[in-house]
Design a protein around this nucleic acid. Structure first.
Length: 493
RNA sequence: GGCAUCGUGGCCGAGUGGCUAGGCGCAGCUCUGCAAAAGCUUGUACAGCGGUUCGAAUCCGCUCGAUGCCUCCA
């Protein structure tokens, strides 16, 4: 029996604003679409948080036994620098500034994106389509929207007629906005504006003669609008209606609102059953922005090469830090918070490593079945990873007490405990233990063991000056000696 | 200015109309030549002011503050 049959999963649907019981369209199968990055610069750490939240959700679905088709796109064209008439494609702009072919920009930052995600231990999505690979599909949708009367062409560009759409549909239902309010709060159109109303958005933009990124269309050479690609790709791979659409909170308006409008205008019905929005990551209480310097790249955290944090942090520690907050809450990154997470992560991994060597007994002081139920309840309650992690630490406490012979566990319970911990910590949360498998670790441990032996001799002779010298100098190199009852061990920090 | 979300102990963060997560720090203890590391034990907090209620940090109103969107941004 698949696990999902015995679990009731509730998820917060942004469209209704409520937690709803999740039932996929087709039993056992889930279609999930998440708006991917625009590859015009290094991937933003906040962006990573969003993708990490959906990676965790993807992992949990898989853990429950669902067959998931997870589509996460790469935006490699069409995302305008601003929505004004002279709006320039983000990638084209970057290419111009760096004197590169647009596809060089795309390639460079797509590689960076994958590289960082791999470090964070992301599972690859089932399909990772690109906007430029789906121009034909996008043109077809535009034709459809034009035919149904919700769009209009002007000088080789095509716009979505929001006012017309709003007559028979509800534009703004996802973000809680009303068209009238939007009209009252937007600036006047300038004389050369092609749009009928400021709320209208581009489906197709005419390419100026010097523009390199261009494709032929019934309306002349141009490129597709940003909102359209997601509609085209989600429809193509997941169908006109699919289960889950995710993205960052900041995409709710206008991007996701426009997706709903485009799909409803062309198909006549709402595309998504559950909308999920991941919240923002701030740093030291402030929004992360390049302009203010309050910004850090993921790679800079891993190497420690930055002015913001006191040291380097491993991808798994950063992942653990992010998983300690609920995906719908704003999370604040700081040196203190990461330091705290690093210690917690370490404690968790130590306990996981200790399970193998636990001695078993005839009784258990730990109600594994109940604990396991609580783990699932946490995840079933809108993917509450902070509670899940708290449950993991419940287990850690028991493991340590068993290790100290203050509690006992049966053989069967130990096996169950280990399997459950591994499933949640590694498969669902996607954390990774410390990699002690360096190619030279054999040599290193030989050398350190030798020093430990010399130190022991010194201690036995009460030559503490020598023993402390060995300890302190190793510590300075990042090798920590741990004196225990049964001798000394070491850790590489 | 409009829309939205939020304000929890020293810090990070769950939760929720009564039973008060978790991590880190601090403190105590165990261990130790001394430490470190590790482990155990320990914390009645919920922006302010009103209101609803037998009972609110949790619901309602107002005030203050933060963040996001409205304009490129996950």
């Amino acid at each position: 029996m698949q696990l999902y049959l015995s679990q009731t999963l509730k998820i917060h649907n942004s469209l209704s604003g409520k937690k709803e019981i999740f039932k996929p369209l087709n039993e056992g199968h889930i279609g999930m679409y998440v708006c991917g990055p625009t590859v015009y610069s290094n991937v933003h750490l906040g962006n990573c948080r969003t993708f990490m939240s959906f990676d965790m959700i993807f992992r949990y679905f898989k853990h429950l036994g669902y067959k998931v088709r997870y589509v996460r796109n790469i935006t490699d064209a069409g995302h305008l620098v601003d929505d004004a008439e002279d709006g320039e494609d983000k990638i084209a702009k970057k290419a111009r500034l760096e004197k590169l072919e647009p596809m060089e920009v795309v390639q460079r930052y797509t590689v960076d994106f994958h590289n960082i995600l791999q470090k964070f231990n992301f599972l690859p999505p089932s399909i990772e389509p690109t906007a430029t690979g789906h121009i034909i599909e996008q043109i077809e949708i535009i034709k459809d929207i034009l035919e149904k009367g919700y769009g209009y062409e002007k000088n080789g560009s095509v716009y979505f007629d929001v006012a017309k759409f709003n007559e028979t549909h509800e534009y703004g239902k996802l973000s809680g906005r009303k068209l009238e309010d939007m009209i009252a709060n937007t600036r006047e159109l300038t004389a050369q504006d092609e749009k009928k109303n400021p709320q209208d958005f581009a489906l197709w933009k005419k390419a100026e003669p010097q523009h390199i990124m261009r494709w032929p269309s019934p309306w002349g050479d141009g490129f597709p609008g940003w909102h359209l690609e997601c509609t085209a790709m989600s429809t193509k791979y997941l169908g006109e209606t699919f289960d889950i659409h995710g993205g960052g909170m900041d995409l709710k308006f206008p991007h996701h609102e426009c997706e709903i409008a485009q799909a409803e205008a062309s198909n006549g019905h709402s595309p998504v059953r559950y909308w999920l929005h991941a919240n923002m990551l701030t740093m030291n209480g402030k929004k992360m922005a390049k302009s203010t310097g309050n910004n850090i790249l993921p790679g800079e955290i891993f190497t420690g090469d930055n002015d913001i944090l006191s040291k380097a942090f491993s991808p798994s520690v950063v992942r653990f830090f992010m998983m300690q907050a609920h995906y719908t809450s704003i999370l604040d990154l700081s040196d203190d918070a990461l330091l705290a997470s690093e210690k917690g992560h370490h404690k968790l991994m130590d306990a996981l490593n200790a399970i193998d060597n636990l001695e078993t007994g005839n009784t258990s002081d730990f109600d594994i079945a109940n604990w396991k139920r609580e783990c699932y309840s946490a995840m079933n309650d809108d993917f509450n990873t902070p509670i899940l992690i708290a449950k993991m630490f419940d287990a850690v406490k028991h493991i340590n007490l068993i290790k100290e012979n203050q509690q006992s566990i049966t053989k069967g319970d130990k096996k169950e405990l280990q399997a459950t911990l591994n499933a949640f910590v590694f498969d669902v949360l996607g954390l990774e233990g410390k990699s002690n498998s360096d190619s030279d670790s054999g040599k290193l441990s030989g050398v350190v063991e030798l020093l430990i032996q010399l130190r022991k001799d010194a201690r036995d002779n009460k030559d503490f000056a020598t023993s402390d010298k060995i300890r302190d100098q190793l510590a300075a190199l990042g090798i920590q000696l741990n004196d225990g009852k049964d001798g000394t061990t070491f850790n590489v920090i």
